[in-house]
Amino acid sequence: MRAIVISELGGPEQMVLADHPDPVPGPGQVLVQVAAAGVNFIDIYRRSGVYPQPVPYVPGSEGAGTVVAVGDGVAEFAAGDHVAWAEGPGSYAELAVVDARWAVPVPGGVDLKAAAAVMLQGLTAHYLCHSTFPVAEGTVAVVHAAAGGVGLLLTQMIKGLGGTVIATTSSADKAALARQAGADFTAGYADFSAVAREVTGGRGADVVFDGVGKDTFDSSLSALRPRGMMVLFGGSSGQVPPFNPQRLNSGGSLFLTRPTLGHYIADRTELLWRSGDLFRWIGKGELNVRVGAEYPLADAGRAHEDLAGRRTTGKLILVP
């Protein structure tokens, strides 16, 4: 098979398209012909060495495709089934082996490219507004990077739950995308805290969903109402440095949490609930999955550069 292989950690140039042995499914695994693989910031962190990674390896952890073969002990899937996953190492390839525990069925009528594009960010958006901070009618939420993969999906879900969205973006074009997704208000990164105060009559937002991190952290806390919640789920601008917890006190007895997807899909029943919601909404036209760009495998390096440079909107996918 053809796959992206990284033999040395470093820049995007380390990702090389090469012939690679076909993987073989072991017990409890499925072999999948990959229709599309998702491109995510965690792929960049692993490739660059921010998250230590043994080499050589095939990058990518998210995708969708058609089951080719199953290993011993797999009863839930069979050859020909459509599946998707958010946790499947080696997804930047024509074939990938995925633990059946992490694979979810993709129903008929849901395009496999959309399925690949929605898994990681869709599951993230789902747990953020259904579990970390359960959004309800009247909730006022700030959504950072609202024109990105998580942001567009999270905005739609919050609106579906009856919430109000203050969307932050870096350009007018991205603000227009956020409004198309349902955002009630848009703001830049320099003034979103003031906008949140203005929109709420000085009270502040109930919750800030912040995947940007270092550059927005202080202003995000300032945007919250007393006893509001700061949900820090990423750090695209860098990691938040250590800070004095008294900042939460002086800000109004604020809550701060740093969740991660793995803890919200550790139980397979929970994984199937969240993915089932996503595919049902897609099938009914209630959730729009924006694929910002498709790249052939050979252009994986360019995809990483575009994502890191914030030159994209929606989801980036690689198509073998």
Rank of each mutant, 00 (worst) to 15 (best):
M1E: 02
R2S: 07
R2F: 00
A3K: 00
I4G: 00
S7N: 09
G10I: 00
V16M: 03
L17F: 00
D19L: 10
V24C: 01
P27D: 09
G28Q: 11
Q29H: 11
V30S: 13
V32K: 06
A36Q: 08
A37W: 10
A37R: 08
V39K: 04
N40V: 08
D43S: 02
Y45P: 01
V50M: 09
V50F: 14
Y51F: 13
Y51T: 03
G63L: 04
A64S: 05
G65C: 04
V67C: 01
V67S: 02
V68Y: 00
A69E: 15
G71P: 05
D72K: 10
V74E: 11
E76K: 15
G80M: 05
D81C: 08
H82F: 05
A84D: 10
W85E: 09
A86W: 11
E87L: 15
E87K: 13
L95C: 03
R101A: 15
V104I: 10
V110D: 12
D111G: 07
L112W: 11
K113H: 14
A114M: 09
A116F: 09
A116E: 01
A117C: 05
M119C: 14
L123C: 07
T124Q: 10
H126S: 12
C129I: 06
H130Y: 12
H130E: 07
S131A: 14
F133A: 09
F133C: 06
F133G: 03
E137N: 10
A145W: 06
G149L: 07
G151T: 08
G160H: 03
G162R: 06
G163M: 00
G163W: 00
T164M: 03
A167Y: 01
A167V: 00
T168D: 15
S171V: 13
A176Y: 01
A178K: 10
Q180K: 15
A183E: 01
A187N: 02
G188S: 06
A194L: 09
V207G: 03
F209Q: 10
V212M: 05
G213R: 04
K214Q: 14
L224C: 12
P226D: 06
R227A: 15
M230S: 14
F233K: 01
S236A: 15
S237R: 03
G238V: 12
Q239E: 15
V240E: 02
P242D: 09
N244R: 11
P245T: 11
R247V: 10
R247P: 07
N249R: 12
N249H: 08
L254E: 15
F255R: 12
L256F: 14
T257S: 14
R258I: 04
L261I: 13
Y264V: 11
R268L: 06
E270A: 15
F279L: 08
I282Q: 07
G285A: 03
G285V: 02
E286I: 03
N288K: 14
P296I: 11
L297Q: 05
A298T: 06
A298K: 12
A300W: 00
R302E: 15
R302C: 07
R302F: 05
H304V: 06
G309R: 09
G309N: 08
R311D: 06
R311C: 07
G314T: 01
L316F: 04
I317P: 00
I317V: 14
P320T: 13
